[in-house]
Amino acid sequence: MKPIHLVVVDDHALFRAGLVGLLSDMPEFEVVGEAADGEEALSVIRDRKPDVVLLDVNMPGKNGLEVVRELRPHEKCCIIMLTISKEDDDLFGAITYGADGYLLKNVGPDELRKAIIQVVNGKSVLSPEVTRQVMHVVAGMQSVGGEAILSARELEVLTCLARGMTTSQIAGELFITENTVKTHVRHIMEKLNAANRAEAVSKAAKMGLIRLGN
């Protein structure tokens, strides 16, 4: 059987070398590239076309989240974040940008081996330590009272509102008319049961629909 091709991205040289060594001992895998930062990662991944990328989040320069955002949707490789970070921004950022897995670095070699095989088979993987955060957000979304969750376009408008943009600015950003923006805003406020735009943004942030500060 053809081995699964891997690229390992981590700025900690010793950890990366150890990890590459462990993966090289597993017959299912072949490590076809390594990178120590985001820029190098993009170049190596585009060049080697691996099946799976193991990607650190916190790196100098371009971080792991930016790498995921730039790779998607063009590169078809699976991406597993391998990090010490349990921060909401990193976890939900990675999921939003299209990562296939989010594993903490306390994972054991055999769990990592299984996770890599799972993502290749079209599944997603999460460390048990972060599933609660994801479930919390999903629970918040369900508490909308059975009403429809916001549409993708409504989420875009809401994100613009959170950035303090005016109706006119949002219309320009999303290439829609101001009236359409107002309609979306009205629907958002109805769905979130918010009295005004600020309350809609605040409620959406609490429910995890958007992240403030981005």
Binding site: L14, G18, G21, D25, K105, N106, G108
Partner: peptide, 15 residues
């Protein structure tokens, strides 16, 4: 307590 780090380092030293 991170097996990837500990086992990885051991492999490097062993090799």
């Amino acid at each position: 307590s991170h097996p990837l780090f500990g086992l990885g380092l051991r492999r490097l030293l062993d090799s």
